[in-house]
Design a binder for these strands. Sequence first.
DNA 1: TTAACTGTTGATAC
DNA 2: AGTATCAACAGTTA
Length: 281
Amino acid sequence: MPELPEVETIAQRLQSVLPGKTIQKIAILHPKSFQGQKSQLAAKSVVDISRRAKIITISLSDNTALLVHLKMTGQLIYIDDRVKLGGGHPTADWTRDLPSSHTRVILSFEDGSNLYFNDQRIFGWVKHLESDALIDEFKNYGPDITDSGVTIDYYFQKAQRRSITIKQFLLDNSVAAGVGNIYACDALNLAKIHPTRIAQTLSRTETERLLAATKTVIRLGIQHGGASIDTYVTAEGLTGTYQNVRRVYAREGQPCPNCSAHIQKMKIAGRGTYVCGNCQK
DNA sequence: TTAACTGTTGATAC
DNA sequence: AGTATCAACAGTTA
């Protein structure tokens, strides 16, 4: 489940390898995974890679851009076979099997390297957009949760108007973008706040604690290269390590990192939610 | 075998 | 406007 830390990890890696490369062709293996005209991409070169919310933007030399959303099961894996010939590159062995049955789009560069977009469930997408269409793409997002603009004043004011649970509020990307189910559950545990609390009932102090906790777990996720709990891998095809330090997500029955009580699983708005009923109030 | 479940986000209905 | 529900899917689990 790629959230901000997972997408950021991939974007940082791509930024270190893709700029300057020229696209040779794009192969569409599944039509629903790509929006745009594939014929318009050849000979364009990559200028820059960035991440906003959970979307990766690959800016091209003609001022257009490729946008990628991984949704739940998307992967973006970059393979440069020439490096293997030199020996010792740590690309995981299974990436040799690409394209796989889940590969939906392949972006090939003139130097022979390839970027594979894999997506088991076909919810994710790659879009080729003109520059003026980019603004529209991001209009429904609040600032990234990591942005300094997400202050306690901003966050508390937003929460005060909402009658949804605090868990749903955390997941609302129009308030602050980038938080998904894993980091929402972990942030609530770190802040010792119960996910079923109604957003507007949290005190300013509690809201401040939760906001700080959310920024902390998101930062920790980035430091660990993301959470490989389900299908997520880095752009090198490797697993992240946040799953090894996660607090409650998918740890039903195991001890709470705060108080050692058993972690419980419940449903909030149809989403699996992990909580310690002992210390989260 | 079949049904439920998994999670992101835009569309839809209220 | 804010909230709730559903659809888009394929693969895994019950």
